[in-house]
Design a protein around this nucleic acid. Sequence first.
RNA 1: GGUCCGGUAGCUCAGCUGGAUAGAGCAGCUGCCUUCUAAGCAGCAGGCCAUUGGUUCGAAUCCAAUCCGGAUCACCA
Length: 592
Amino acid sequence: MSIVNSIKDQVQAAVSSLYGYTLSARELTINTTKPEFEGDYTVVLFSFVKQVKRSPEQLGKELGEKLLQEYPGSYSSFNVIKGFLNLTVVDARWIGFLESSYADKEFGKQPANGQKVMVEYSSPNTNKPLHMGHLRNNFLGWSVAELLKYDGYEIFKTCISNDRGIHICKSMVTWQLFGNGATPQSTGIKGDHFVGDYYVQFGNEHKKQMAELTEKGMTKEQAEKEAPIMKAAQQMLVDWEAGKPEVIDLWKRMNGWVYEGFDVTYKRIGSDFDKTYYESGTYLLGKKAVEDGLSKKVFFQKEDGSVWIDLTADGLDEKVVQRKDGTAVYITQDIGLAAQKQEEFGCQQSIYVVADEQNYHFKVLKLICEKLGIPGAEGIYHLSYGMVELPTGRMKTREGTVVDADDLIEEMVNVARQKTEDLGKVKDFTEAELKDLYDTIALGALKFFLLRVDPKKRMIFNPEESIDFHGFTGPFIQYTYARIRSILRKAEGTATVSLEGISLYKLEKELIIALEQFPAILSQAVAEHNPSVIAIYAFNLARAFNTFYTEHSVMNAESAEKKVLRLHLSEMTANVIAAAFRLLGIRVPERM
RNA sequence: GGUCCGGUAGCUCAGCUGGAUAGAGCAGCUGCCUUCUAAGCAGCAGGCCAUUGGUUCGAAUCCAAUCCGGAUCACCA
């Protein structure tokens, strides 16, 4: 049990035996004591002074004395200031905790709980390369999956590839018209960028053709549809749905290029999936759901043949689920896919990592699935995250204002290299070791930058200011880790001694208190599906260590006991940093 | 217009299940490398927590209204 929880139990017991009053969980708040006061934990008395009919001062005094008397092994002293009871926990208790946990490389990990959770994330379109928004999505999805795994769930990571539709046809048509048979191999351009370039070119051509048509007197709306290149793309979509062989071949070929490109990026950023679904293989799945919905009278058909669901009773609108031409809309595909995933994996919870612009969509999806009685519908959870924006507003592919993922990573690696060379601490590294270190630092900085912010909030990224390597950053924490590893290498073979009876300095105790909180932080992060909780914690822990480190020497400690104590403190800090970073998908270097 | 999300230091963000004097990082300014890695540490400066009202022992936090910004309400995906 955590120390806070055992304090709660003891306070409850003490109040009960003193006043015959049972404190509810809501009435009992215990915080870590503010640094300006003496003590480790603070019991807030205001919330139950009335119930026990005492003044705050009197209550604090009586309660403090009772605790000290009943649990002499737990508390060494107390003080009461206004309505706050500050308790000091005996050093031996902290040391006992440290001794039992310092070598645990998986501190806080929970045993398997038999529950299965699916996490769907990444979900790219195959007509353009990954950008910064995808990175946030990937890092988030991956990290939340790891968090749940650590918390005892069995996890399945999936990805849905939006590989069909008008968008990919646009790239295909443009390649046919202007490509002259070029390939990623012949041009040396990474496949996803290669295809993405044609998508951008489509936009330019389309604009050009629209201008010509509007000059001839067409309205903008007409021109948009009538532009020859747009008509060609539309036709291609029809041909694709009809299964025209040469279109299918081209589609497979171009998507193949994109996947080759994606694979490189995914490998680099460490994203992986247990299963990838392709929209081309699932977009007809909704049919069954529509029939099912009609027979259950959840859906109704209008005169023109289109199928709808009326959600006005739930405060939403009427929503179309099948077009009058009988084809499925987006939401229907998702319903079909949800049902299929449930059949294949049977998870209790299904998490969709998708940007917050789709909040409404997922609200509707969940509601419809519930009404259709699809198993696991209650377990649908939309992990909604805010978009990454530029200081000038949203990123737009067509306007060329996206921050490309590959470019950004490359730039980060360059900064990491430059910085490392300037410092000159790892001159003995081999080429391969250096390359690995630059990747570790660069991706560490990038992932930390994107994960340290509450997922719900949209975040602003200014490409003019490069991502920092100092302060509240990944490299800061990696550096702390490397420093500790350096000490531990030097300390190998140090004889262990009993720590009984030794007392703790303030900075030593603060570090232990921080370490002890890790499991509580984990459950918070899991409950909120929020890796930023871990990121912030890791930073605070590293900072606490650095403060301790400059103040107290480990290897030249004043006694053998202190040396062992500090080695254990250092080792546990390193273990917890490594565990926290593993959950964020960030590696830690032995040296940097 | 309806619904949802946000507004905290010059900038980027914590704190939001109500608790003590609102915290970090960056940027600015001072110090600290002949002792375990200075990607570090210590310090200074920087705030009408959007506004107004309410709830109470206590409000950045809860409630209401207002203002500002964003998303969404497609037979697009």
